[in-house]
Design a binder for these strands. Structure first.
Length: 276
DNA sequence: AAGGTAACCTGACTGC
DNA sequence: TGCAGTCAGGTTACCT
C-alpha cells in the first residue's frame, strides 16, 4: 500500500537490517513484474555486500557491491525482513537470502511493482531520470520554494491540479491520497486548472503538502513499525484522512458532505464549500 | 506539446 | 454460495 510515506517507512524499516550483509543467494519466483526481473539478477548478486537503502520518489535504491538495485512497490507491493523458516506466501516473488539466516522478501499480488538494476549514479535507470524535486526531506526546498516551483511549472498548463500533482516530473512521489488531502488543506478544488492558480495559493498548497506527507511519515514510523518485522504483520495505515475515502461524510471544517468525482479514471474527493 | 485513455494484474467487496 | 461487476495506494505507452 505504498504512498511516499509508506515507501519511506519501508526504507527506514529495512535499511539498518540489511546494510553490510552478504547476499548468499537470490531466488526469483516470478520474473514477470511491471518490467521483467533481469535474467542476471540472481547470479550477479550472489556474494555481493549490501550497502545503504535510499529513496527517490516512490523508488527504493539499495546499494550493493555488484551494483545498485531499484525497487518499486507499485500498487500492492511490500518488502519484509523474514526468517527463512517462515512459510512463503503466495506472491512472494523475490527472496534475498542474506547472511545470518535473514531474508528480504518482495511481495506483490498485483505485480505492478519493479525489481531491477538501478544503473549507476552517472547513468541511472530511465525510470529515475527526470523526476521532480522531493517534496520532503529536501533542505534546499522549503514550502515557499516548492510553491514557487509549482507556480512556475504550471503556467499556461490546463490540466487539473490533482493530475498536475501526480506527475512525477513536477514533484516526486505524490500519490492520489496526498494530492487530495493537500488540496483540501489548501482550500483548492482538485479539479481546478493548474495554470490558473495564484502563487500565494501554491505556496500554501506546498506547505500543506509537506505537512501532510511529513506527518504521515512520522505516524508511519510508529503505526507501520511491524511492516518489515520478522514476526510481521503488514500493518495497514491507520490514518485519519480529511477527504480521501470520505464520500458523503461531513467535512471536518464546515460539516458539508465530502463529494467524490472521477477524473482520469481515479477518484477525487473534496469539499464543495471549503475548496474553491 | 500537452493531455486524456487504456493497459498492466489480483483481490476485496457489493449486490443480485 | 456463487457470479458479475466495481474499485484500488502507480506508471507509462499510445493515441489525438
Amino acid at each position: 500500500m505504498p504512498e511516499l510515506p509508506e515507501v519511506e517507512t519501508t526504507r527506514r524499516g529495512i535499511a539498518d537490517r540489511i546494510r553490510g550483509l552478504m547476499v548468499e543467494s537470490v531466488e526469483v519466483r516470478q520474473f514477470r513484474l511491471r518490467l521483467p526481473v533481469p535474467e542476471d539478477f540472481s547470479a550477479r548478486l550472489e556474494g555481493a555486500i549490501l550497502g545503504d537503502t535510499l529513496r527517490r520518489a516512490k523508488y527504493l535504491i539499495v546499494e550493493s557491491s555488484s551494483g545498485r538495485l531499484l525497487i518499486h512497490l507499485g500498487m500492492s507491493g511490500s518488502l519484509r525482513i523474514a526468517d527463512p523458516t517462515q512459510e512463503l506466501r503466495k506472491h512472494d516473488h523475490v527472496i534475498w537470502n542474506l547472511e545470518g539466516d535473514r531474508q528480504l522478501r518482495y511481495h506483490d499480488p498485483r505485480r505492478f511493482g519493479i525489481v531491477t538494476w538501478a544503473g549507476t549514479e552517472a547513468e541511472p535507470h530511465s525510470l529515475i531520470q527526470g523526476l521532480g524535486p522531493e517534496p520532503i526531506g529536501n533542505e534546499d526546498l522549503d514550502g515557499d520554494a516548492l510553491g514557487d516551483h509549482l507556480y512556475a511549472y504550471s503556467r499556461k498548463k490546463t490540466r487539473r491540479l490533482r493530475d498536475f500533482l501526480l506527475d512525477g516530473r513536477v514533484v516526486a512521489g505524490v500519490g492520489n491520497i496526498y494530492a487530495n488531502e493537500a488540496a483540501w488543506r489548501a482550500g483548492i478544488r482538485p479539479d481546478r486548472s493548474c495554470g490558473r492558480i495564484a502563487r500565494q495559493r501554491y505556496r500554501k498548497l506546498a506547505h500543506d503538502l509537506q505537512d501532510v506527507l511529513q506527518s504521515a511519515v512520522d505516524k508511519g514510523g510508529s503505526t507501520l513499525r511491524d511492516f518489515v518485522d520478522p514476526e510481521g504483520q503488514t500493518g495497514y495505515f491507520q490514518h485519519v484522512f480529511n477527504v480521501y475515502g470520505r464520500e458523503g461524510e461531513p467535512c471536518h471544517h464546515c460539516e458539508s458532505e465530502i463529494v467524490r468525482e472521477v477524473l482520469s479514471n481515479r477518484s477525487l474527493f473534496y469539499c464543495r464549500q471549503c475548496q474553491r
